[in-house]
Amino acid sequence: MNREKLLEDVKKLNKLPALPEVVYKIMLLKEEDCSLSALEGVISKDPVITAKLLKIANTVYFNPYGQSVTGLKRAIELIGVRNIFSVVLSIVVTNLFPIEAKTFYRELFWKHSFLCAFISKRLSRFVKGVSDDTAFTTGLLHDIGKLVFYSYFGDSYEKVVELTQKGIPSYLAEMRVFGVSHDEVGSVLLEVWGLPAEVVEAVRFHHTLTDSRNFSELTALVHVSNILTMLSSFSYNSGVLFVVLNDDPGWLRLKDYITDSDYEIHKIFDDVVYAIDIAEIAWSRE
């Protein structure tokens, strides 16, 4: 399959899932009135999402005092109305791709994505003009193109994995094997799904910042968060041993916003523990 054909197929959602209605409903609510009861009304119709939200609301991160949460309304309150969209999105998307390939490590994929989302959101508080919700969504979806490859090519994605083990970054390995890489494929899918243009752009350039004439803060944010996932066990062997932050164009852009940036990096390193906790509980397959 060549590059043009693949991108064409993605645009038509051939062999790819559409986003379920509930996501669009929440997206709409987000723009209009995002009241607790309106959200509850939409979400309660979906028992799977409701059950997951309850579980997530009961994690230490959202519920530090450990009162047991059993009602959807309270769960939404604890998670935060602002965060509901990204949390629901992550629940939905995780279950959307029925990938059978033996070489697809479903848990690793989602934990990595979640961690990237968590760090993006964490960093977004410093960066003017980037909402935490958008940052989370972008982080969560940044590698979604990999799922497209798995959906189309199944186990032959393993060729890419082999190349990365030799030290070639995944997007370059994909270029070599498929003629196109997950950042581009992912951005096309997200565009079809109707996600905001800024999200699409950030996903498109998350590995190749400097290819974008004037990369956005959001792009820098997700790029850096992806690097910071290295600090956990939820990262891919990208062939890169270490990244000196001060040499990274994305970090140089963000750094100006952060007063004591070295300190914040340490803090994020500490907070990653929480993220891992939530990821373990909420996003692993039961």
Partner: peptide, 26 residues
């Protein structure tokens, strides 16, 4: 060690590097 920091005393002499083994300094 992972919990140690030199950020208060390092001045501009070391840069943070992100690795799978946590933060190291260059």
């Amino acid at each position: 060690a992972p919990t140690e920091t030199i950020r208060d005393i390092s001045g501009d002499r070391f840069a943070i590097a992100i690795t799978m083994g946590g933060i190291i300094y260059v």
